[in-house]
Amino acid sequence: MSFFIRHKKSAALKPKANPYPSRSPRWRYRLGFTLIAIGLLGGILRLHKPFYDGIEQRLFEGTAWIQAGFIHPFQETRALLKNTHVFMHLREEYERLSQENEKLKWQLQTLGALHHENGILRQHLHIPIVEQCGHLTAKILSSPYDGLHHFFLIASGDKDGIEKEQPVIVKEGVVGRLEKVGAHVSRVLLLNDSNSRIPVITSTSQQKAILAGDGTFLPTLVYVGDVRKIQQGEQVLTSGMGGIFPAGLPVGIVDEITNNKIRVRPYVPFKSIEWVHILRLHPEGFREELNAALRAE
């Protein structure tokens, strides 16, 4: 009696015929036509700029509110913890603010006399008086970071009279500029973003340069007149070139100089600010006048 049973090899499976022979080609043709139609529609919308800008604006506002709603609980939790800490140290904060108030009162009296004297000197020297620009205070909705791009979403837009490219500051210094303005929400491009370029000047060596963001918290100075004259620790201010940022706004200090690469540490604490100020300048009008003057030459 044999203990081993020989198994027969199964025959090769024969391919079955497709019960729906016409379905696959039809699906391919429909997919191809759909992709071609989407491409043509996108090209037409892109060429028709007013219609394209309107769609882009609506998409920006919709995504902005979604981002703000997603990050809002985390920001409220951080604000609650911060308020608890402030409440615990309320007495020390009151004493500090009282001392600061007395100092500001004394400085205000001194500046009043200097302002009057400055006006008289300007009249004698026939120097035109430049009107100070106003500002708008706006609350930060969210601060999403995605590696290289750094921006804030703020709760202000066209309804508040702000415009694209207007500078954004806080009491410490320059934050950035308005990159996109919606009806109720706007996006602020920070000075350390990879697309940010700000004309600046160093306070001690008086070297003009461009502050270029690279996605890190220490932007670099490029197009410097003489790198050897710049000293570590000197202040960096806006130069007023370009027509967006007024001259003299504090930006940061020279943090390190390595292999002719100069890095600047901004004054603004980006992770802790909750409100920003938008300067009511008109950079778009300035650029139009400048381009018209250049074309006339």
Rank of each mutant, 00 (worst) to 15 (best):
L41W: 01
R78M: 14
I129L: 08
L90K: 07
H149G: 02
L237T: 04
D53K: 08
H72I: 10
P128F: 03
V185H: 03
V222A: 02
I5A: 04
G173E: 09
R46H: 11
L114E: 00
S196M: 05
Y223W: 05
P167E: 13
K105G: 15
Q109Y: 14
F270Y: 10
R295S: 13
D255Y: 11
Q207A: 05
S194V: 15
V227T: 13
L41C: 09
I278S: 03
R122D: 14
S143F: 13
I71C: 00
A209N: 03
G157D: 09
G243F: 11
L121Q: 12
E100I: 01
W65Q: 03
Q132H: 09
I201E: 05
K8W: 02
I129V: 09
I262H: 00
N291A: 11
R280Q: 06
I38L: 11
A17D: 14
L35D: 13
P266W: 12
W275S: 04
V200I: 09
G161M: 01
Q109L: 15
T202H: 02
H282A: 10
L59D: 00
I38W: 12
L191A: 05
V86H: 13
N118A: 10
N118W: 04
A11T: 02
Q75T: 11
L221I: 08
N260S: 06
L141F: 08
L189G: 04
Q67F: 07
G182M: 02
V181S: 03
T258A: 09
A292Y: 12
Y52V: 01
D255R: 10
